Simulated assay, not measured.
Amino acid sequence: MRTAAGARTSIAFDAIGTRWTITAAEPIEAALVARVDEVIAEYDALWSRFRPDSGVARIAAGEAVDLGPTAPPLLDLLAELRERTGGGVDPLVAASLDHLGYGPAGDLRPAPGWLPAPRAAIRRDGTVVRTDPPALLDVGSAGKGQLVDLVAAALADAGRREAIVDASGDLRVAGAPLRVALEHPYDPTAAIGVVEVAEGAIAGSAVNRRDWSLEGGRRLHHVLDARTGEPVDTVAATWVLAESAMVADALATALFLVEPEALEDAYDFRWVRMRTDGVATWSADLPGEVFG
């Protein structure tokens, strides 16, 4: 996604494997930068499946781990979406991603075939989480959005009432409305439409964001059907506008697996979806336009 905004103060940095840009109407002092760094570091220490010392890694080793106040809303949302997608969205998909080479080793060398997400129960007592049997969690379908919300909250707490937090396409906007171009999944120099985001969030997911080759030429990507462990091959890209980046992020993933109607009775959101054959559909009340 590409954005357009007026003259503001911006900082850019890399964290959790992605590029971040924070833009505000007022200066972003060193103390606020340090607070943002702290928020991100704390989240990464709990939820990163790429770290052997993280909270989710300890759960995979058989521990019951206190994941703090971010756990209830995040895991409840993912549990709801697991139900609504018939198991297609599942935080236990970590094993399937690792099987395809998208794991801590980072070698992108897939093992043969597909590996469905393991059958395990996620047990939660307040903020303390364990799995039965032990299994690794991957909350990438909503976690980056939740972290965007946390960073936006840190900015608001510091008095930055007009700000944009952008984590490589997951955006939270406070203050003046922002026009956002929807990047074509097959041509990063083109857009398939433009939407306006005001006091809310937008998140997108696309097959070209994290993709790699399987021996024999098939392209793999990170959006899997957890029931089979196979990359989804019918949808190329999705975008969702919602009140929070966590919900927008999660629903953008869910739209790879179900029709919007399966979600509209439970969530307040607007959406655009492009299939792999190039056909795009969108919600009737989308605040913007999709090009013909």
Results as ranks from 00 to 15, higher is better:
Arg227Val: 10
Gly86Ile: 07
Met1Pro: 08
Ala117Glu: 01
Ala45Lys: 06
Leu75Ala: 04
Pro104Lys: 10
Leu263Gly: 00
Pro134Arg: 07
Asp285Tyr: 15
Glu38Ala: 15
Asp285Gln: 12
Gly145Ser: 06
Glu289Phe: 12
Trp114Cys: 13
Leu77Glu: 01
Gly106Thr: 10
Ala203Phe: 00
Glu80Ser: 05
Gly17Asn: 02
Ile22Lys: 01
Pro185Phe: 07
Asp98Ser: 15
Ile28Ser: 04
Val247Pro: 04
Arg218His: 15
Ala121Ser: 13
Gly200Met: 09
Asp98Thr: 15
Gly216Leu: 04
Ala262Phe: 06
Thr189Glu: 14
Gly86Leu: 09
Trp20Ala: 01
Arg209Val: 01
Ala111Pro: 07
Val33Asp: 03
Ala280Thr: 15
Ile11Thr: 08
Asp14His: 11
Leu214Pro: 07
Leu251Arg: 03
Gly113Trp: 11
Leu182Tyr: 09
Glu38His: 12
His184Met: 05
Pro27Thr: 12
Val89Arg: 01
Pro110Asn: 14
Gly292Trp: 11
Arg19Phe: 01
Ala284Thr: 14
Trp114Ser: 15
Gly103Cys: 09
Leu263Glu: 03
Pro116Val: 15
Glu26Gly: 06
Thr85Lys: 01
Tyr267Asn: 06
Pro112Asn: 11
Pro104Val: 14
Arg179Val: 13
Glu215Pro: 12
Gly101Leu: 14
His184Leu: 06
Leu257Val: 05
Ala266Pro: 00
Thr281Met: 11
Gly101Lys: 10
Ala252Lys: 01
Arg161Trp: 00
Pro260Met: 02
Asp44Val: 08
Asp53Pro: 11
Thr9Leu: 06
Ala15Gln: 08
Thr228Phe: 13
Ala15Trp: 09
Asp14Gly: 09
Val180Ala: 03
Gly86Ser: 07
Ala95Val: 11
Ala117Thr: 05
Arg19Ile: 00
Ser168Glu: 14
Phe256His: 02
Ser54Arg: 06
Asp249Leu: 03
Gly140Val: 02
Gly229Pro: 08
Phe13Val: 08
Glu261Asp: 14
Leu100Ala: 11
Ala117Arg: 04
Glu162Asn: 13
Thr21Phe: 04
Arg160Ile: 11
Ser244Phe: 08
Asp107Cys: 06
Leu32Met: 12
Ala154Met: 05
Arg227Trp: 15
Ala60Pro: 00
Asp138Gln: 00
Ile164Leu: 15
Asp170Glu: 10
Val148Leu: 07
Pro260Leu: 04
Met1Arg: 05
Ala120Asn: 08
Gly126Leu: 09
Ala158Lys: 05
Ile40Met: 10
Arg273Glu: 06
Leu220Glu: 05
Leu286Asp: 11
Glu83Asp: 13
Val247Tyr: 01
Gly87Asn: 05
Val258Ile: 13
Leu147Gln: 14
Pro110Lys: 15
Pro110His: 14
Arg8Gly: 11
Asp53Phe: 12
Ile40Trp: 08
Val148Trp: 04
Glu264Ala: 15
Asp14Asn: 10
Ser244Ile: 08
His99Gly: 11
Phe269Lys: 02
Leu77Thr: 04
Thr85Trp: 02
Tyr43Leu: 06
Leu147Asp: 03
Val180Arg: 03
Arg49Gly: 04
Leu97Phe: 07
Asp132Ile: 10
Val258Met: 10
Ile11Ala: 00
Asp268Phe: 00
Ile192Asn: 03
Asp37Ile: 14
Asp285His: 14
Asp138Trp: 02
